[in-house]
């Protein structure tokens, strides 16, 4: 969240509320809307570290509002972060751990686990397609949607692979 906000602020200085708005517009569809409190908390922490600063602005309606902007340190921090190579690919999910464990233990529940995960992935894909169709695409959203889709597909392929290598208990059609 920290770097994300720094990036938004690098475009222009703005209020905390508007930062939430920008976040939701950009990635909210996929990542969910962000809690405005979380934004302020993060902004506060960043200000403590000297990455951002704020000025007060008078408002016609209600109390003064804080307008946050990037400091030089903040700008530097953003730049350093962008230029640093990304961390190693992360492969971490509950489904992964559970299914691998069940496989290793030869647990009977493994097939149900596989099927459940498969269904989840399918439904997620379905929703993803709908989302992609409805929302205006921006570069960021598009990239996120693709990432999500491909990861889901990867999971599904992985499930197929596992299923092929394990014997099926009964040759019977499983229905939902």
């Amino acid at each position: 969240m920290k770097h994300f906000l720094l990036a938004l602020l690098s475009r222009r200085a703005t209020y905390g509320l508007e930062l939430k708005q920008q976040h939701d517009d950009l990635v909210g569809v996929v990542a969910g809307r962000v809690n405005v409190g979380q934004i302020y908390t993060t902004l506060g922490r960043m200000e403590d570290k000297g990455l951002v600063s704020h000025v007060l602005e008078a408002s016609d309606v209600g109390p003064e509002r804080k307008v946050y902007e990037l400091t030089e340190d903040g700008s530097k921090e953003l730049r350093l972060w962008l230029e640093a190579p990304p961390a190693a690919p992360e492969l971490k999910s509950d489904a992964l751990t559970k299914i691998v464990t069940a496989l290793e233990l030869d647990h009977p529940a493994v097939h149900t686990l596989i099927r459940d995960h498969r269904r989840q992935c399918f439904e997620a894909l379905r929703a993803l397609d709908m989302t992609a169709a409805e929302a205006d695409s921006s570069v960021a959203l598009d990239a996120l949607v693709q990432a999500a889709a491909l990861h889901l597909q990867a999971d599904l392929r992985w499930l197929d692979h596992i299923e092929e290598r394990t014997a099926r208990p009964e040759q019977e059609l499983h229905h939902d």
Partner: peptide, 20 residues
């Protein structure tokens, strides 16, 4: 060997279906 009936989903369901 397997069958999944897709239930109806909406775009808004997405955030609950994945965690990004």
């Amino acid at each position: 060997v397997d069958e999944h009936r897709m239930r109806a989903v909406h775009a808004s369901d997405l955030q609950h279906l994945i965690s990004l």
